[in-house]
């Protein structure tokens, strides 16, 4: 089983705040709904490009959406 990356995110919280579905967010950033689910569950850390795209969808800075969890 792959080790979880120490990257946290507020994607689910911000998506629900904006009333976006997982499919809509996925379409906005160019990934599938399953990848959005994996990002929200911390099973996948998006590429830097996708991280910026997600932040732009939420009109937030990248560090407002993603964080680093000290090990």
């Amino acid at each position: 089983m792959a080790k979880r990356p120490p990257i946290t995110n507020r994607v689910r919280e911000l998506r629900e705040r904006d009333g976006l579905s997982q499919a809509a967010l996925g379409q906005a950033i160019g990934v599938t709904r399953q990848t959005v689910i994996a990002i929200e569950q911390g099973r996948y850390s998006p590429s830097l490009e996708s991280a910026f795209r997600i932040s732009r969808v939420f009109h937030a800075g990248i560090e407002d959406v993603f964080g680093w969890e000290e090990e």
């Binding site: 160019g30 990934v31 599938t32 399953q34 990848t35 994996a38 996948y44 998006p46 590429s47 996708s50």
Partner: peptide
């Protein structure tokens, strides 16, 4: 609906 899904970065 998923049949045309292209491989995204995670895939």
């Amino acid at each position: 609906s998923e049949a045309d899904d292209m491989m995204d970065e995670r895939d």
